[in-house]
Design a protein around this nucleic acid. Sequence first.
DNA 1: GACTAAACGAGACGGTACGTCATGTCTTGGG
DNA 2: CCCAAGACATGACGTACCGTCTCGTTTAGTC
Lengths: 205, 205, 205, 205
Amino acid sequence: MSKSRVPGRPRSEKSREAILDAAFALLVERGWAGFALEAVAATAGAGKTTIYRWWKTKADLAVDAFFHATEEELRFPDTGTARGDFEAQIIELAALLTGARGRALAEMLGAARTDPSLGKALAERWLAPRRRWGYERMARAAASGELAPGVAPGPALALLYSPVYTPLLFGGETPGPEQIKAILDLACSAIFQGQAPQGSPDPTG
Amino acid sequence: MSKSRVPGRPRSEKSREAILDAAFALLVERGWAGFALEAVAATAGAGKTTIYRWWKTKADLAVDAFFHATEEELRFPDTGTARGDFEAQIIELAALLTGARGRALAEMLGAARTDPSLGKALAERWLAPRRRWGYERMARAAASGELAPGVAPGPALALLYSPVYTPLLFGGETPGPEQIKAILDLACSAIFQGQAPQGSPDPTG
Amino acid sequence: MSKSRVPGRPRSEKSREAILDAAFALLVERGWAGFALEAVAATAGAGKTTIYRWWKTKADLAVDAFFHATEEELRFPDTGTARGDFEAQIIELAALLTGARGRALAEMLGAARTDPSLGKALAERWLAPRRRWGYERMARAAASGELAPGVAPGPALALLYSPVYTPLLFGGETPGPEQIKAILDLACSAIFQGQAPQGSPDPTG
Amino acid sequence: MSKSRVPGRPRSEKSREAILDAAFALLVERGWAGFALEAVAATAGAGKTTIYRWWKTKADLAVDAFFHATEEELRFPDTGTARGDFEAQIIELAALLTGARGRALAEMLGAARTDPSLGKALAERWLAPRRRWGYERMARAAASGELAPGVAPGPALALLYSPVYTPLLFGGETPGPEQIKAILDLACSAIFQGQAPQGSPDPTG
DNA sequence: GACTAAACGAGACGGTACGTCATGTCTTGGG
DNA sequence: CCCAAGACATGACGTACCGTCTCGTTTAGTC
């Protein structure tokens, strides 16, 4: 069996990397608004044709470049309790959204309302996996009796994640870690059984 | 006590109205992305110069046009209790954000991350008054003992409003009224003293 | 009475000249094949929009630029006899077609077969007036009995002018003045009555 | 008597033919302007590499394809008299230049001014043999006393052939057979001794 | 009733980026 | 060593708005 089935010159991995790197750099430096394909092509030493060959839209490239550089940082934690897992993940998320990378993602999330292709790309690469994990973790929490009585997973997830995202819509003041912690504590007090996560994780009472 | 101090032709009120109307119509019809000043000028029968004379930026015009047509609908309610007031206001807000006008506002909020002038305009006209009212109402709630012990106003407001805004960042599915109600109930259960205002608030399943 | 009827900012004569000059320079320097509108716009310090506003096609601009710089040189002579007029005009024409300008015109004439807009522009600006003059002069020659018996104007004009144009189709060797003179003499001997125009310029051997 | 001297895979005759056929078809159908190597390769089922391996330039291929399909039609006639030979050849030439093939050749001749490789290829394949034959035939005519006194071969050939080529430079109206005949008669009356070959050549009006 | 001066409509201006196209070169695996 | 397939960098294309500019024309209040 041969290494490859298709005839013709194979895709240049070097070019792919150069494009993704240039795209990510430009995205972080100039934001989505200044994300010009012409500039990406120029600094990557690539032709625009090559970009359009592999990425259907500007949005696809931006999202791909963003996650090519970022994705591995976002792991779904496993602390033993649902509350611990959610808190850990949300704090990590808040950290990501703060800083240069966060600006880029925020701008893309914002522009997604206007650009459907961007919306679709982000939904696939960003939202869907996180939503999937959230619902699944919430189901496990329900099964193990960690949720307060009457708490449905949808509203619970909305309450947990929204406060991290909302600042992306408004001015610059992304909430700092203590603020995030305070909001999370308040949300968790409504969602989970018992007290704070560490120490006695499941103090029945 | 003359009619006017300044010499020269006075500003044309007719032109101002025509521009604001055309701008609002275009904004609602085409969204922020399709909001072209050239089109506004053309349908208003105005010159671009006139627009730039009175509005510093495209964003200023869009925001001004939006609130010129919308603002009066948004009143701050007075139901007697803090929980009632917040619930009423948030439900009204959610209703506004659903529909054509909502799309326009959502797109503007999203684009604000990219366009500083838009951000500034929206912060002044939209965010600031609501934030002011929210903090003030929260302070009165604290004074009257309506808040659960240990609840700070910042996190409480974040928890209440964020779930309404966050969907603007993601795909089309704005939460319906029941969903909003469910989320609100959950949030309020952490923030306010006592039970839900009407009937049996927490129908255990 | 006002100077102008139309409202709006008037066309910039400076810009028009700059564009025509840049276009002509580029055309002469690089030929039709290298005649890029982007380069014209850049060296003229003009926007591409401005060019497209005033010239429907690349061909229109090229032809306009060419004749803006060249036209005045081509006057229709008046020597007293038809043979003298045609000879003078054709020699002048041959001189024009030799040299840098000639190359540009030759390339345009050649490319006209491929590019209809170029063909149309050249037909209007180049061919039509010359054809008109040729037929009209030929008619006067017939009326004054200068033509040999049985000579129709169409074939006569074809015989006179074709030898100057045909070299444009083939390689570089444009015929020199003496060659042109020899061909002209041969053609004239078939077309016109009697001997050579002035004195005895052509000592028959 | 081995099958082949050179090592490696021998050139595919099948591929050569397919490429020439596809090239000619495309040339006739779309003209020189629409003659895209990519399309040739695609419809020939060949790789672009193969084309560039065997034909140095696009022009070489086009010219080769054109004459591969056309050349044999153009024979040099032998009617007994120089005038008869030239007339026959020029009329055949005019016929060739009218019609689909003619369009292709005309476009190539036109584009040759712009594309040196095309010029060179056409000069070699088209112009040179015809020029050679013309001068040689003219020399024989001179030797046999068929030329009018004082007629040099260069100007004579220019007068005979130019009127057929010149229309290629201008609009669509290629001259019809009678027009060609009339021009030829006029030219021949200056070049050749005695009267026209058939009938009454000079119908005085 | 003439003068002054700013606002007005219209639209031309220099730019920037868009997404598409064909060119001629290159890089594979297979024959 | 040839072949097909097709990816690659390049560079121009014609389009769409941007925010600025320059006109000649209103439309008032002041002299």
